[in-house]
């Protein structure tokens, strides 16, 4: 990273530059781990980069930022991800 003096009005890297985008969700992806084969497709294709791989290589969704688009559920070959209606 290039060091820019503090106080100069430039944008700096930040997780959640638009806040906790998890609050945008209408439906929530829930992984049924018994059906998950650790293929990682959801991880590669989560368009929001909101899925992490845990140490055991199972995927884990970061619900603070997941926008509930449903892409992960659509690409999962074993249908291990269910989109559940979320009422807040």
């Amino acid at each position: 990273m290039v060091n820019v003096q503090e106080g100069i009005p430039i944008a700096r890297p930040k997780i959640g530059s638009s806040g906790f985008t998890g609050s945008w969700r209408i439906t929530k992806p829930v992984i049924h781990y018994d059906a998950c084969t650790k293929c990682r497709l959801c991880y590669f294709y989560c368009v929001e980069n909101s899925i992490d791989l845990q140490q055991d290589l199972y995927p884990k969704i970061d619900y603070d930022f997941c926008k509930g688009c449903g892409v992960c559920a659509d690409v999962c070959p074993t249908k291990a991800i269910e989109m559940v209606r979320e009422v807040k």
């Binding site: 890297p13 959640g16 530059s17 638009s18 945008w24 980069n49 909101s50």
Partner: peptide
């Protein structure tokens, strides 16, 4: 490219 940005869901 960090999560929690302004892109539409599914973008």
């Amino acid at each position: 490219l960090m999560r929690g940005n302004a892109a539409c869901p599914g973008c």
